[in-house]
């Protein structure tokens, strides 16, 4: 089936298997491999992307559910070779260790900041409650987001 949506600012049409998940299309059809498959059932958040301004698990969405929607993936955060300030903050705070959770974690935090540029620590923690990280202990991630909030 033909599917139309906007991906990182570009409107595209792709031919998709009706049973494919959005994650499958992003990775296999569009070559956007930033979103990862971890658990495949919405527990780990490694596949998190932003759809119409909201953080969602791309492993729990059939591709056709994205019809007409605006999708943002981790690949769009860097602009002209310059990392997004949230990405820089993750590096500066030591919030990236093995890196597997990082794209999903960044997209959950980005979605939060898009809606709420000055979140409280509780709001930051709620935003990432669906993202598992086995390396950092989360403190460095919360610190990274906080540093972006306080620098604004």
């Amino acid at each position: 089936m033909q599917l139309q949506f906007t991906i990182n600012g570009e409107q595209i049409t792709v031919d998709v298997n009706p049973r494919a998940r959005l994650l499958d299309i992003l990775r296999d059809k569009l070559g956007l491999t930033g979103a990862k498959e971890g658990c495949g059932e919405g527990e780990c958040g490694a596949c998190t992307i932003i759809m119409d301004g909201l953080a969602v698990n791309s492993c729990l969405i059939f591709a056709h559910q994205a019809r007409g929607k605006e999708i943002i993936t981790i690949e769009s955060l860097e602009k002209d070779g310059e990392l997004d300030q949230l990405q820089k903050a993750f590096i500066d705070s030591g919030a990236v260790q093995c890196g597997y959770c990082t794209p999903g974690m960044l997209m959950s935090c980005k979605a939060l900041l898009m809606r709420n540029p000055k979140p409280t620590e509780t709001e930051i923690r709620t935003a990432i409650e669906g993202n598992l990280c086995r390396c950092t202990g989360y403190i460095k991630i919360v610190n990274a987001v906080n540093s972006v909030v306080t620098n604004k």
């Binding site: 698990n57 729990l60 409650e129």
Partner: peptide, 9 residues
């Protein structure tokens, strides 16, 4: 219910 990502869908 679930997490932020799940509650959004």
């Amino acid at each position: 219910v679930g997490s932020t990502q799940i509650r959004n869908m």
